[in-house]
Design a protein around this nucleic acid. Structure first.
Length: 283
DNA sequence: ATAGGCACCTGGTGGC
DNA sequence: TGCCACCAGGTGCCTA
């Protein structure tokens, strides 16, 4: 479930097993995910110490002590399983290898990180740390929604000329980083904005309301994900997989959750993807 | 420059 | 049980 909150949850789950620790051995079980891995990736990772795990949009960035940064994207189906952690914080024993385990890091502290991705829309690359932000995959991305750069004036300016549905404009990572199909639907519901409306036709005042709403939607989801980390030991160890209660996403035909609203959640397909909304609350 | 559609890939679900 | 159509949390690339 990798939108920003899930990626942040994964980052937080990986941090205690990886930060400050040497990658004793990195192994790759195939030559590529969405793209070929960089040259000699396993060799370049093996023996490197992870200084810090960062997140930019839906990317995880692992800064290494060799001046390189490992970039990780989970795509649609990517998972990071932590096992064998000596602190007993995660799945204790290494589970049997599974289909689609593409990359494995054995850490010097005994932890094992397994990257599993059935659809292989995920990616890994190695960047020079000092110029990481200039990487083509990162350079065009808009402000972090939980950072200082995501302001009402930014969003108003970014959307006032966009002749595309507000749903599409918010999915565009140049507008704001990290939103995906679920949280755009949820944010538009909370803002009372119909997903099909053209962005430039929505008043600046209404667009401005989206800023705190987007922040809150994402923070709520991160809080929910973070709490699920506590369940790791007895759970099956699936990092980044947690329950979340949605107002509209995936609820086609079910009643709107707004008090006194009698409408049912509708689904409309926009550029090939489902949008869920309440036709009464969202205009 | 911007907008829309396609492609990449596997697995789960529901209908016949 | 088998087969098939359809759906899924992302995003780069190609075309108008």
């Amino acid at each position: 479930m990798p939108e920003l909150p899930e990626v942040e949850t994964v980052r937080r789950g990986l941090a205690p097993a990886m930060e400050g620790t040497v990658i004793a051995q990195a192994r790759v079980n195939r030559p590529d995910l969405r793209w070929p891995f960089p040259d000699r990736m396993a060799e370049r990772l093996t023996g490197a110490r992870v200084l810090q795990l960062r997140r930019r949009s839906k990317y995880i960035l692992a800064d290494l002590d060799r001046g390189e940064t490992l970039l990780i994207h989970l795509g649609m189906s990517g998972r990071m399983l932590v096992s064998g952690d000596p602190l007993g914080q995660f799945v204790h024993d290494h589970p049997a290898p599974e289909k689609h385990d593409h990359v494995v890091f054995d850490m010097a502290n005994g932890a094992r990180i397994t990257f599993n991705d059935p659809r292989r829309f995920g990616a890994m690359d190695l960047l020079e740390t000092s110029t990481a932000e200039a990487h083509p995959l990162l350079a065009q991305i808009g402000p972090e929604p939980l950072g200082n750069g995501f302001t009402e004036s930014h969003l108003v300016d970014a959307l006032k000329t966009r002749n595309t549905p507000i749903k599409s404009a918010l999915l565009d990572q140049k507008t704001v980083a990290g939103l995906g199909n679920i949280y755009v639907c949820e944010a538009l519901f909370r803002a009372g904005i119909h997903p099909v409306r053209r962005a430039r036709n929505i008043s600046a005042k209404r667009i401005a309301t989206l800023v705190p709403i987007i922040r809150t939607v994402l923070e709520d989801a991160i809080d929910a994900g973070g709490s699920s980390l506590k369940d790791f030991r007895q759970a099956d160890g699936e990092l980044g997989y947690f329950q979340h209660s949605f107002d509209v996403y995936g609820r086609e035909g079910e009643p709107c959750r707004t008090p006194d609203c009698t409408a049912t959640v509708q689904r409309v397909v926009q550029s090939g993807r489902s949008s869920f909304y309440c036709p009464s609350c969202q205009r």
